[in-house]
């Protein structure tokens, strides 16, 4: 959960990912807002339940790749045709085919490195970052659903328990940093 998230949350703990997806579907059907899921491994179907918007990362890659392409091409044209023209094998100074391999490589390099950096930055994955852990077993064998607590808590807890939650508890935002 994000640092900015405030308030109390209901947490349903499951021991099976299929039960989690089923319970999540029912919770969403009953118009509860699902804050987040915590699972030890990626589970299909959770993204749809969370209404996560499409990542803008591909756009970052595209722009960075384009920048790399222009940069590489401009630099090569400048060095070998403008600033210090060198005659190689009698070819024209401005020989685009000869510049293509380096242009391609720099495009890939800029695109890839920028994408990784942008991802780490947006996901706040850097040294010293304290990960949010609600329950230690979310890293092992248990699957958590996190829903903001509200007036219909009793109904929500019953729904979770009826659908296979092994434990339902309340916790304040921020989690226990164990």
């Amino acid at each position: 959960m994000d640092k900015k998230v405030q308030g109390e949350f209901v947490i349903g703990v499951f021991d099976d990912e299929e039960k989690l997806v089923k319970a999540g579907t029912l919770v969403k059907r009953d118009n509860f807002h699902i804050q987040d899921f915590f699972t030890p491994f990626p589970v299909h179907g959770l993204d749809e339940l969370l209404d996560i918007k499409r990542s803008r990362l591909p756009f970052v890659t595209f722009v960075a790749g384009g920048m790399g392409l222009i940069l590489a091409l401009a630099f090569q044209v400048w060095t070998s045709a403008v600033d210090w023209p060198i005659n190689v094998g009698g070819k024209p100074m401005l020989s685009i085919p000869a510049f293509i391999p380096i242009t391609f490589e720099l495009m890939v390099l800029c695109g890839a490195l920028t994408t990784v950096a942008a991802f780490l930055f947006r996901a706040k994955l850097f040294p010293g970052q304290i990960p949010v852990t609600i329950d230690r077993r979310q890293l092992d064998d248990q699957f958590l659903i996190v829903i903001p607590s509200g007036e219909k808590n009793a109904e929500l807890e019953k729904l979770l328990r009826d659908n296979g939650a092994v434990k339902v508890e309340k916790q304040m935002a921020g989690g226990r940093n164990e």
Partner: peptide, 11 residues
């Protein structure tokens, strides 16, 4: 491009 460039380059 691989084929084109090598032939263009070696001439």
């Amino acid at each position: 491009f691989c084929q084109y460039m090598l032939i263009w380059y070696s001439n």
